[in-house]
Amino acid sequence: MSDREANSLGRILALVLRHAPEKFGVEMDLNGWVNSRELSEAIQNQRRHFHWLRGWHFEAIANSDDKGRYQVEGEMIRATYGHSIELELDLPTDDIPEALYWPCDPESVPTHMEYGITAGDRKHVHLSKTIANAMEAGHVRISRPAILEVDTTRAVADGFTIWRAGKTVFLCEEMPSEYLYHVEEDDPSIQEMISMWEEE
């Protein structure tokens, strides 16, 4: 599979497994799982240039994805995060780091520090494992995102559930302001990312 084909297939997987399984006519269970064989056949029927696609190609994509966007078990595949559809994800809640990070527009920092973080147009708040991961996630839509640190140890102790969704992504339904701290822009991890972007 070429890089171009892998990117195109990745976009299709994101559409089907995160947002609109009905567009390809595949059945999804309440935990987000779809049958790999049925999915490959559905993609072949709608995108003739993927006539060669087989279920095992999804496993290759899942295993090579550095963020852990997809999970394959047997003949089933699902997206682990990024959903806009209502699901009951049965993700693990163990091995949560002591702190996680969330990117936002610098102008919205005071609002989040007062009111917390909510999911917005997604079904969950997406938290990152490191400041660098959060900077990368935020940079997709904000040129220089601000970073909020989440005290996950206190949040979990107080009864908030945080799920481990991918290699660097964690989910929660919301995060109240009392668990948030603004990471200053002079933090070395933030400065390193800004320097890297300025060199591009």
Rank of each mutant, 00 (worst) to 15 (best):
D105E: 14
Q44S: 11
T93R: 14
R141I: 11
K129H: 15
L53M: 12
I162E: 10
I77M: 08
R141W: 06
G55I: 00
G116W: 00
P92C: 09
V16G: 00
C104P: 01
V169T: 09
P21V: 00
T111Y: 14
Y70V: 01
V16P: 00
Y181R: 14
E27R: 05
H19W: 12
I194T: 11
G138D: 01
H51G: 10
P176T: 06
H83W: 01
W197A: 03
M175K: 03
D29E: 03
D90Y: 12
E41K: 15
Y115N: 07
S108G: 04
Q71W: 15
E41S: 13
H19T: 14
D187S: 10
R37G: 08
R47K: 13
L30R: 13
R164Q: 14
A132G: 09
P92Q: 10
K167H: 10
R122S: 15
M1K: 10
M1R: 09
I12D: 10
D158E: 12
T161E: 15
V72Q: 07
S40K: 04
R154F: 01
R144A: 11
L100S: 06
F24L: 09
A119E: 04
T93P: 08
V183S: 11
E178H: 10
Y179L: 03
E22V: 08
G166L: 00
Q46I: 10
V109Y: 08
E38G: 04
G166P: 02
D121Q: 12
F50A: 10
P97H: 05
P145G: 06
Q191H: 05
V72Y: 08
G74L: 05
A62H: 01
R4V: 15
T93Q: 15
A146F: 04
S128L: 05
E73V: 14
P97E: 13
L9K: 00
I131P: 04
V125F: 00
A20L: 12
E59F: 09
F24C: 04
V34C: 11
A134T: 05
K123V: 10
D90M: 15
E185L: 03
S8E: 14
I162C: 08
D121A: 13
D121V: 13
H124N: 12
R37W: 08
Y81R: 00
A146W: 07
S189H: 12
E199S: 11
P145F: 07
H49S: 15
D95H: 09
D186C: 04
D151H: 09
E200D: 13
V34E: 05
S143G: 01
Y115T: 01
A155G: 03
I194D: 09
E192S: 05
R18H: 01
D186M: 06
S64M: 05
E199M: 08
V183R: 13
D158W: 00
Q71I: 15
P103G: 05
A157G: 03
S40L: 03
P188M: 05
V72K: 07
L180M: 07
N35P: 06
S128G: 08
